[in-house]
Write a protein that binds this DNA or RNA. Structure first.
Length: 799
RNA sequence: GCCUCAGUGGCGGAAUUGGUAGACGCACAGGACUUAAAAUCCUGCGUGAGUUAAAUCACGUGCCGGUUCAAGUCCGGCCUGAGGCACCA
C-alpha cells in the first residue's frame, strides 16, 4: 500500500501553510455558500456520521471551486450545551475548559479528514466575541416587542430541583435521576414566534428546501382554518369561546368540555356547586405527566360542572359543561364544543357519561362509533341538505351576522420559551428595575459575560446558578440609574445556531455581527447540509430569527437557506444506531490511521445513497483503500503523451460528464462507481496518457484530495489540482458507433444484435427478424404490432 | 391514529425516470505467482432446468390485482420496517 500517512500529512501542511482554502469576497466571481451543520463538540469526538456529511460538503466545495466559484466553506462549533454543563457540575470545572479541549480534538479530527475549510473563519458560539451579538440580536427582538416575560409551565424535577427540557423529561421521568417530573409555573422569556406562523409557511415557497423537510415544518406549524364560536352561559353574564374547524356541525354539539386549567373555573368557583369535585379533578390532572395525560388508549375521564350550563347558539338548547383532560389549554381556547356523533373523542366521552348523541351528517351508524367522514347535513336547520363546504361557508356567515363568532385560523406552533435556568448558555442581557420594568443592557456594555461561579447547579428553587452571585445580579438600571437586578436566565441551546451562518460571512468583525457588504456578497446559503433531526426546530428557529432580522433591515434576505438537503445516518454494521452504551461506535480517527483519510472519505461517499441511512462495513472501506492503491499503481503505465488517446477518449468524456452530474445531484455513490469503472477500463486497455491520468485525478480529487495532488505532482505537473479548473467534455466524443439492439417478442427478450448507431427504424425492423432465435418465435405467426424505440429495441407482437 | 420515507442477489447498493434488472463494490469459489502465507493479478458468481461446454428455456425487484407491445418504475388494494407528530378540537 502507498504511504498515505506521509502523503496526507504533507498535503495538509501545504494547505495550512499556503492558506489554500482561504476565501475573500470578490465581486468579479460568482459566489457559492456551502454550509454544513456545525457540530456540538462532545467528549465522544467526531462520529463517522460527521465524517460523511463533512466529506460530502467538502466534495461540493472542491467541485464548485474548480468550476470557478468563489466558495465559502466554513466550520465552527455549537458549543453551549448540556454535556459540558453536566461535566462541570460533576468535576467543579468551568465548562469552557472542557469545551475547549473537545473543540481542539474536533478541529484536529476535521483537519485530518482534509477538509477544504477556510479555518480563519472558525467560530464557536460560547465565545464572548460571538455571543455578544446573540445578545445584541435578542435586544432587537425585545425592542421590537417580540420578547416578553410570561408565566409558563415548565417540566420540573423535584429531586434535582431543576427545570428540564422536553428532551430531558421523556417518558415523564427525569433523565438524570428517574424521578417523576412535575409541572411548575415559571416566569420565562418568550419570543413571539407564533405570530410568524404564516410567514414561516409562505417563506418556504421561494426555497428549494427538501420537500419532506418542508412538509415536516408545515405539520409542525399546524395551521388549521376554522372559527371561534361563543357559547353563552345560562347562570351568569359570561360566555365560553371555542375554536372549531367544523362549525358546520354546531347543531350536533350536545355538550362542552373545558381543559382542567381553564380560568373560568377559578373565576366562578362560588357558583359551581360541585367545586370540590372539580378541584379534585384539577389536582389529579396536574399530578399526571404529559405522557399519562396524552395516552390515547386510556379511558376518558371528567367531571360535569354543576352550576354552569351553556347554550348552543344555533338552537338555544341548554347543554352541560364538563371538565376533562383530553382538552388542552395550550391549543385553541382551551374549550371545545363536543359533537359526539362525528368526533371519536367526543363520542367516547358521551358514551361514558351518557350524553345525547345527535347525528348531523348523513352516513355511519352512531350506535357503534362516531361517523367522522363527510356527508350531507341533517338535523341542522338551515344547513340541511348542504355538503361540508357549503355548510361551512353558510355557518361562517351566520356566526358573523349574528355576532356569535368569526372565522379564525389557529396554529399549533407556540411562542418560543427562550429562558433556561442553567449556567452554560448566553446570559439574557436584561435588567429589571422596579421603576422602569425590564430594560435591555446598553449596547456598549455587551457582552454580558458569563461570570465564574462556585457551583454550576441550579439553586434549590430552580433558579440559574447566576442568581447566587450578588456581584452579577446587582446592577443599576440602564435607563434611570437606580439600583436594579440582572436577569439570571440564560438562552436555550438553539440560540447560537440561529445566526451562525451570518457570522461565517464576516467572522472576525468586532464592530457588527457581520458587515452589510459581506452579507450582500454571500447572500443566501446556497446549499445547507444537515440531518433530518433538525428539520423542524433548528430550521424553524433559524428561519424565524433571520426573517425577523430581515424585517429590521439587518440582513439582505428573508429566507436564509436557499437549498436544504438531509443526509442519512451511518448505522452500525447490524443496522442499529451507533451508541456508546452498545460499544459499536466507529471512530473515524482509527479508520484514518489504518486506511487513510482519502480511503475513509471515498468509502463514506460510496457507502450508499447519501440521503439514506447506511450500515458501516469495514471490508468495503478496505475495498476503497485498494481502489486508491490501484490508482497509485496506474501511474506506472502512464505514457508521456499530452493527448487523449483513441482508446480512452470515450471513457474520459463519459466519465467527466457522469462524475460532474452526479456531484451536482448529490449522487456521490454513483460518482465513485463511475471512477472505479474508469480505472477498470484504463487497466483493460493497458494504456493511459499523462493527460488522461491528470483528468482522472481531477475527477477523483474532490473525493480523495491528498493522493490525487501527490500523483499529479509525481507525474510532473507544477500546478496543484486545487488551483486548476474542472475538466470539460466533448459532447461529440460521447457517441457510440454501435449499440446492442434488443428484440422482444410478446414482451420477452428473444435476441440481441450489435448494430450501427445510424441504423434506421426500417432497418431495425428488418434486422430484428433475421435473428435465428427471433425467427423461432415469429415464423408462421401473424405480426400484429411492431414497436421501434430508436437506438434501443424492437418489440414485436405476434398472434 | 396521522404524516414522511423505504422494501431489488449472501451483503452495501445501481438502473438514463416506462425500454436488456442486478452497474460498482464487498463477501465467496477456482486459478496464476510464491517454499508458504499475505498482497497482487485472472476467472466465475440471482434461482432452477439444460449442456462436455455453450446455446437456450422458466422463474425472479415485499404480497395481490390492473394499465401497457413493454412495469423495480405508473394506477388500485394490502403486508412489513424505519423516522417524525400525536386526545391539535
Amino acid at each position: 500500500m502507498y504511504n498515505f500517512k506521509n502523503i496526507e500529512k504533507k498535503w495538509q501542511e501545504i494547505w495550512e501553510k499556503k492558506e489554500t482554502y482561504k476565501v475573500v469576497e470578490d465581486n468579479n466571481k460568482k459566489k457559492f455558500y456551502m454550509l454544513v451543520e456545525f457540530p456540538y463538540p462532545s467528549g465522544a469526538g467526531l462520529h463517522v456520521g460527521h465524517a460523511r456529511c463533512f466529506t460530502a460538503s467538502d466534495v461540493q466545495a472542491r467541485y464548485k471551486r474548480a468550476k470557478g466559484f468563489n466558495v465559502l466553506f466554513p466550520f465552527g462549533f455549537d458549543s453551549f450545551g448540556n454535556p459540558a454543563e453536566q461535566y462541570a457540575i460533576k468535576n467543579h470545572e468551568h465548562p469552557s475548559i472542557m469545551t475547549h479541549k473537545c473543540i481542539d480534538v474536533f478541529r484536529n479530527q476535521a483537519k485530518s479528514l482534509g477538509l477544504s475549510v477556510d479555518w480563519s473563519r472558525e467560530i464557536s458560539t460560547c465565545e464572548p466575541e460571538y455571543y455578544k451579538w446573540t445578545q445584541w440580536q435578542f435586544i432587537k427582538f425585545f425592542n421590537a416587542g417580540l420578547a416578553y416575560k410570561d408565566e409558563k409551565e415548565i417540566n420540573w424535577c423535584p429531586k434535582c430541583k431543576m427545570g428540564l427540557s422536553n428532551e430531558d423529561s421523556q417518558g415523564g421521568k427525569c433523565v438524570r435521576c428517574d424521578t417523576q417530573v412535575e409541572k411548575k409555573l415559571k416566569n420565562q422569556w418568550m419570543l413571539r414566534m407564533k405570530d410568524y406562523s404564516e410567514k414561516l409557511i409562505d417563506g418556504l415557497e421561494d426555497t428549494e428546501i427538501l420537500d419532506k423537510v418542508k412538509t415536516a415544518q408545515i405539520n409542525w406549524i399546524g395551521k388549521s382554518i376554522g372559527a371561534h364560536v361563543d357559547f353563552k352561559i345560562k347562570e351568569i353574564d359570561d360566555k365560553l369561546t371555542v375554536f372549531t374547524t367544523r362549525c358546520d356541525t354546531l347543531f350536533g354539539a350536545t355538550f362542552m368540555v373545558i381543559s382542567p386549567e381553564h380560568p373560568i373555573i377559578s373565576k366562578y368557583e362560588d357558583i359551581i356547586k360541585n367545586i370540590d369535585m372539580v378541584k379534585k379533578y384539577q389536582d389529579e390532572a396536574k399530578s399526571k405527566s404529559d405522557i399519562e395525560r396524552t395516552d390515547m388508549t386510556k379511558e376518558k375521564t371528567g367531571v360535569k360542572i354543576d352550576g354552569l350550563t351553556a347554550i348552543n347558539p344555533v338552537n338555544n338548547k341548554e347543554i352541560p359543561i364538563y371538565i376533562s383532560d383530553y382538552v388542552l389549554m395550550g391549543y385553541g381556547t382551551g374549550a371545545i364544543m363536543a359533537v359526539p356523533a362525528h368526533d371519536t373523542r367526543d363520542y367516547e366521552f358521551a358514551k361514558k357519561f351518557g350524553i345525547d348523541i345527535i347525528p348531523v351528517l348523513e352516513g355511519g351508524n352512531i350506535e357503534k362509533e362516531a361517523y367522522i367522514e363527510d356527508g350531507v347535513h341533517i338535523n341542522s336547520g338551515f344547513l340541511d341538505g348542504l355538503n361540508k363546504e357549503e355548510a361551512l361557508n353558510k355557518m361562517y356567515k351566520y356566526l358573523e351576522d349574528n355576532k356569535i363568532g368569526s372565522k379564525f385560523t389557529n396554529y399549533k406552533l407556540q411562542d418560543w420559551i427562550f429562558s433556561r435556568q442553567r449556567f452554560w448558555g448566553e446570559p439574557i442581557p436584561m435588567v429589571h428595575c422596579d421603576k422602569c420594568g425590564w430594560v435591555p443592557v446598553n449596547e456598549e456594555e455587551l457582552p454580558v459575560v458569563l461570570p465564574n461561579v462556585e457551583s454550576y447547579e441550579p439553586t434549590k428553587d430552580g433558579e440559574s446558578p447566576l442568581s447566587l452571585l450578588d456581584d452579577f445580579v446587582n446592577t443599576t438600571c440602564p435607563k434611570c440609574g437606580a439600583p436594579a437586578k440582572r436577569e439570571t436566565d440564560t438562552m436555550p441551546n438553539w440560540a447560537g445556531s440561529c445566526w451562525y451562518f451570518l457570522r461565517y460571512m464576516d467572522a472576525n468583525n468586532d464592530k457588527e455581527f457581520a458587515s452589510k457588504d459581506k452579507m450582500n456578497y454571500w447572500g443566501q446559503v446556497d446549499l445547507y447540509d444537515g440531518g433530518m433531526e433538525h428539520a423542524t426546530r433548528h430550521l424553524l428557529y433559524a428561519r424565524f430569527w433571520n426573517i425577523f432580522l430581515h424585517e429590521q433591515g439587518l440582513v439582505p434576505y428573508s429566507e436564509p437557506f436557499y437549498k436544504r438537503i438531509a443526509h442519512g445516518m451511518i448505522l452500525a454494521s447490524d443496522g442499529s444506531k451507533m451508541s456508546k452504551s452498545k460499544g459499536n461506535v466507529v471512530d473515524p480517527t482509527l479508520m484514518i490511521n489504518e486506511y487513510g483519510a482519502d480511503a475513509l472519505r471515498l468509502y463514506e461517499m460510496f457507502i450508499g445513497d447519501y440521503s439514506k441511512d447506511a450500515a458501516w462495513n469495514e471490508d468495503s472501506l478496505n475495498g476503497c483503500a485498494k481502489f486508491l492503491d490501484r490508482v497509485y499503481n496506474l501511474s506506472n503505465i502512464v505514457t508521456d503523451e499530452d493527448i487523449i488517446s483513441k482508446e480512452n477518449e470515450k471513457i474520459i468524456n463519459k466519465g467527466i460528464k457522469k462524475v460532474s452530474e452526479d456531484i451536482e445531484n448529490l449522487k456521490y455513490n454513483t460518482a465513485v462507481s463511475t471512477l472505479m469503472t474508469m480505472l477498470n477500463e484504463f487497466n483493460a486497455n493497458k494504456k493511459i496518457t499523462k493527460k488522461e491520468y491528470r483528468i482522472f485525478l481531477q475527477l477523483l480529487n474532490p473525493f480523495a484530495p491528498h493522493i490525487t495532488e501527490e500523483l499529479n505532482q509525481m507525474i510532473g505537473f507544477d500546478k496543484e489540482l486545487s488551483t486548476i479548473s474542472w475538466p470539460s467534455y466533448d459532447e461529440s466524443k460521447l457517441k457510440d458507433d454501435t449499440y446492442e439492439m434488443v428484440v422482444q417478442v410478446n414482451g420477452k427478450v428473444r435476441g440481441k444484435i450489435e448494430v450501427s448507431t445510424d441504423t434506421t427504424e426500417e432497418e431495425m425492423k428488418k434486422l430484428s427478424k433475421e435473428i435465428d432465435n427471433v425467427k423461432n418465435y415469429i415464423d408462421g405467426k401473424e405480426i400484429v404490432k411492431e414497436v421501434v424505440v430508436p437506438k434501443k429495441l424492437v418489440s414485436i407482437v405476434v398472434k
